[in-house]
Design a protein around this nucleic acid. Sequence first.
DNA 1: AGGTGATATAAGCTATCGCTAATATATATG
DNA 2: CATATATATTAGCGATAGCTTATATCACCT
Lengths: 110, 110
Amino acid sequence: MQAFDVLSDPVRRRTLELIAQKELASGAIVNVIEAEFGISQSAVSQHLRILRDAGFARVRKEGAKRCYSIDPTGFEDVQAWLDQLRRYWCVKMEALMIEIERGKRSGKKS
Amino acid sequence: MQAFDVLSDPVRRRTLELIAQKELASGAIVNVIEAEFGISQSAVSQHLRILRDAGFARVRKEGAKRCYSIDPTGFEDVQAWLDQLRRYWCVKMEALMIEIERGKRSGKKS
DNA sequence: AGGTGATATAAGCTATCGCTAATATATATG
DNA sequence: CATATATATTAGCGATAGCTTATATCACCT
């Protein structure tokens, strides 16, 4: 699954917000998400799998519990794509600035 | 439609790449996308509407043509969310660093 | 080993997304 | 005005994402 697809789901975004602040056991995540979105443990677990598979979350076993924390890896592609795009339009913008500057110089008296 | 939803489609991402480099008429976009993805003018037009509505693209009329260019507005929310998340885990990381530093000081001889 | 709590997986249903085909709108041009 | 060109909109269809329910797995405790 593509990185942006992963982030397009509100439950997954909220989950990332939670585990970005501190490592949380699956159960703790389920509690919050169940309260906020009204979905089942199963549904949350499925989301967690997607986050793992896409490199947005890491798991650590602690007895029977699975402790989730954020994994920056997944965000790299996303940020890279955004940065690349920004570079494109910044170059364009700079060209525009130069154009305006030139216009000012030749348009104004001095 | 939510910003990340908009970016989750490959056709829309490609379209943004195109119009980020330079303003393009709908027809020109259709040509590229049609070639690369094999979809119809109608499909592209529907994607363009979504990009407009979500603040990712601007339109300028030029006779019968519609010229599309990128609109940074749509990206603000996306970037803000990513930045917020990064702040979360950076704070966490910094706390970890301090912890390690403290460990080194008390662990090593001097 | 059996029981219990914590989490993951599988099967199946439904809503939604993105497509096509057809049609509508808008602007130039003869 | 008629026709052509450029783009947008609508209706309808198929695929897929995300949910529920049920079941499986795994670790701990007695």
